[in-house]
C-alpha cells in the first residue's frame, strides 16, 4: 500500500518552467551534488598529496574534475530519469481554420493582407497561404 508520503514524492510538479517528478528531481540533485564534490575532493587529494600537479594548479585541476563529475551525473540522470514531456506530433493546421479558431474573420484578414507591403504578400504567396486564406 503506498503511503501518503510515497504518493507525494511520486507526483509531478512544475519546477523552473518544466515538468518533473518530485522523487526523480530529489535524486538527480543528490547525484549531481555528491558526484561533483566527490570528484573534486578525491582529485584534489591525489593531486596535492601525491604531487601530481604543481601546488598553485591543484585547485584548478580539481575544479575540472569536479565539473566532470557533474557532467557524468547529468548523463546518468538522463538515463535513469526519463523526460516527462508528453510529445504529441500532430498534423499541420490549415491557415484558414486556425484563423477561425482564433476568432479572426478570414475575409477581413484577406483584406488586410492585400493592403500589406508587397514583400509580405509575396511571402504569404510562397507559403501557399493567399490561396488557403481566400477559400470559403
Amino acid at each position: 500500500m503506498p503511503t501518503n508520503n510515497d504518493r507525494y514524492w511520486n507526483q509531478y510538479a512544475e519546477v523552473w518552467n518544466d515538468l518533473v517528478r518530485i522523487r526523480d528531481l530529489a535524486l538527480a540533485n543528490v547525484l549531481g551534488i555528491v558526484s561533483g564534490i566527490i570528484f573534486y575532493v578525491i582529485s584534489w587529494y591525489f593531486l596535492s598529496h601525491q604531487g601530481w600537479a604543481a601546488p598553485e594548479k591543484v585547485r584548478g585541476y580539481a575544479l575540472f574534475f569536479g565539473i566532470l563529475g557533474c557532467l557524468l551525473s547529468g548523463w546518468l540522470s538522463t538515463r535513469w530519469f526519463k523526460a516527462k514531456r508528453e510529445l504529441v506530433i500532430g498534423e499541420r493546421s490549415g491557415f484558414h481554420e486556425a484563423l477561425i479558431q482564433m476568432g479572426v474573420d478570414p475575409e477581413k484578414e484577406m483584406a488586410a493582407i492585400k493592403a500589406s507591403p508587397a514583400d509580405n504578400q509575396r511571402e504569404l504567396g510562397e507559403l501557399g497561404i493567399m490561396v488557403d486564406c481566400g477559400k470559403e
Partner: peptide
Amino acid sequence: KKVSHEALIGTFSGLIVVLAYY
C-alpha cells in the same frame, strides 16, 4: 524526448555547489 529536466537541474545544482566549494 531525451533530456529530462531533472537531469538538467541536477547537473546545475552540482556545478553551483562545486564552484562554491572551490
